[in-house]
Design a protein around this nucleic acid. Structure first.
Lengths: 338, 338
DNA sequence: ATGAAAGCGCTAACAC
DNA sequence: GTGTTAGCGCTTTCAT
């Protein structure tokens, strides 16, 4: 460590303003009684010396650090990133700083991060991860507020914020119905993903509400373009009457779209296509641009942050809160676009 | 705030072990002289009470927080994420926690974050952002270590870690030469991006070293699939002899690949294709999977973290350090794959 | 080897 | 109004 530069302290400011440290504190924080003139002198002195109060010292005293830990199990890839951004934004507005931790889904690393951050006296934690499947509760000291984003806690008494996947599927089904498409197929990720099953259920429900049903059971596979291509081909071959396909992800939808085009059929004229995620760069790069269900991930993060702030403030909530997705209409369902 | 749970302090442990606080400190930190027995008693007492030392208090004393601020100007999208992951990993190993800040390229927000974090007495900063273009130095208090990752500082005395874009272009050119391709085109992003120009220069140099040259000047455009499709078509129409194309990004390469295929030509048989970034999900989802220049972003982050730790330890470096990219070979250049 | 005491930078209760 | 004092939790001389 270099000769650690001695920063100006409250005492330096006090000396310069010709008052006591206590008075400086009051003047700067607007607590207690200070005359306008001394207040001015103090402010001036602080400005001149470039004084920046030591938040650490204050935190020791307050027993509260105005920081939170954000733990992602998932190398903050595509899904956690928007969540974290939303959360960071909401917390930053509340003057809270965010510690970033990538546990890589490793319980040892997770425990390590928790230990270190509890040592830093974080006010709480936000946990996020890729899958919408349930996860074990975070092993924090009792009383520490935790909010789960995207992956709900196995303990129903905990506070979890998740995407409303059922509603996502329903949005797609309703849009098809509205457009007069009636022979709908569904191609999605692995069946062991809660999100996949729930989106399928939502789609089926929405179709039923319009007196329709899927032309075939949902096609469960993988969250990849390649699966989209395979399944797309298969569906178009076995069910040539299909005029609409809802996909569990934008990547799958890209694959399906390519397959449809290669079979000489057109999107959206012959087949309307809806994806999920609204992964902008992928959805808008498609030909035609992809209509998709935006899963509102940044809202998930934002709400998680708000709930955490509430819990820190002594008003914890319980249970799973589902955030509404929204449909983003582009050329793959709208013949006038793309 | 709820009845803020009173955590166990060093005094509680001391009482339980029947020693003084000072002795507990020594025993726990291995400083000073402590008899093995008391050491044991202290350790036991600490474990039983679930004692976790308050890092904040220690930091006040040490005038050092073992935290750093990571500021991204770019909503940690695709490029900053791997950098931040690499940095976080390297810093975590050094017991340093990372504050995450998304300045969204807004100078006001950036200044705000700097203020807050300097108040928290971070030991230094890592700055990252999308573009490889030069940025203004971070406005921190003099003496605060800062390392720039991806976007170098305008001040050459600062320490910046960047991708070696010239080498990236060269890798592509050398690979083409090695495979006997001789009629090479280059399609890339906007010319005002340093990265675009440098990759082009590296490609040209490598070709020259093999006594080749581009069939046409680089095609500068946008970092999008759509531009890739347009440019790909144009190139194949105007220069049907082309047998290799290097693209400034994987997304562009995807567009180019689609264009080639739609003109009835084959990748890699007729045209070998190399992208840049190694954006896994995009590169592997392509048909055939995309050979690409991996820009080693996580290494950029890791090295930035190491340089920052060195600077914090009093051994700052100066100047721009370029990190070597590496070629990842997949089906788009290798007829035996994909 | 251990304890007492002072201090890190800041805040808050209490004098004056 | 303002200064003095004690104390947040921890570390570190300095006695003993």
């Amino acid at each position: 460590m270099t000769e650690s530069l001695r920063r100006t302290t409250i005492r330096d400011v006090a000396a310069r303003a010709g008052v006591s440290p206590g008075t400086v504190s009051k003047a700067l924080n607007g607590t207690g009684q200070v005359s306008p003139e001394t207040r001015q002198r103090v402010l001036a002195a602080a400005a001149e010396t470039g004084f920046r109060p030591n938040a650490l010292a204050r935190s020791v005293f307050e027993r509260r650090s105005y920081t939170v830990g954000m733990i992602t199990t998932d190398s903050f890839e595509r899904f956690s990133v928007p969540v974290m951004l939303g959360a960071e934004d909401a917390l930053g507005a509340g003057q809270i700083s965010v510690f970033l931790c990538d546990s890589r889904d490793d319980p040892i690393r997770e425990k390590h991060y928790i230990d270190v951050l509890q040592g830093r006296r974080v006010d709480g934690f936000i946990v996020t991860g890729r899958s919408s499947n349930i996860r074990q509760p975070l092993a924090v000291e009792p009383g520490t507020p935790v909010v789960y984003a995207l992956t709900p806690s196995a303990n129903p008494a905990d506070c979890s914020i998740v995407v409303d996947d059922q509603a996502a599927g329903a949005l797609a089904g309703e849009h098809f119905a509205r457009m007069g498409r009636s022979r709908v197929a569904h191609i999605t990720g692995p069946e062991y993903f809660d999100a996949a099953r729930e989106r399928a259920a939502g789609l089926v429900d929405a179709l039923a509400a319009a007196s329709m049903e899927l032309v075939a059971s949902p096609f469960y596979g993988a969250w990849t373009e390649e699966w989209g291509r395979q399944a797309g081909q298969m569906v178009m071959r076995n069910h040539p009457e299909v005029d609409a396909i809802y996909c569990g992800s934008d990547l799958i939808a890209r694959g399906v779209g390519d397959a449809i085009r290669e079979l000489g059929r057109s999107v959206p004229k012959d087949v309307a296509l809806i994806g999920t995620d609204n992964w902008e760069i992928v959805a808008t790069g498609a030909r035609p641009p992809l209509t998709t269900v935006d899963t509102s991930l940044s809202d998930v993060g934002r709400i998680a942050a708000e709930r955490l702030l509430e819990a820190i403030a002594g008003r914890p909530r319980s249970g799973v809160e589902r955030v509404a997705p929204r449909l983003v209409i582009r050329g793959s369902t709208d013949p006038t676009d793309g």
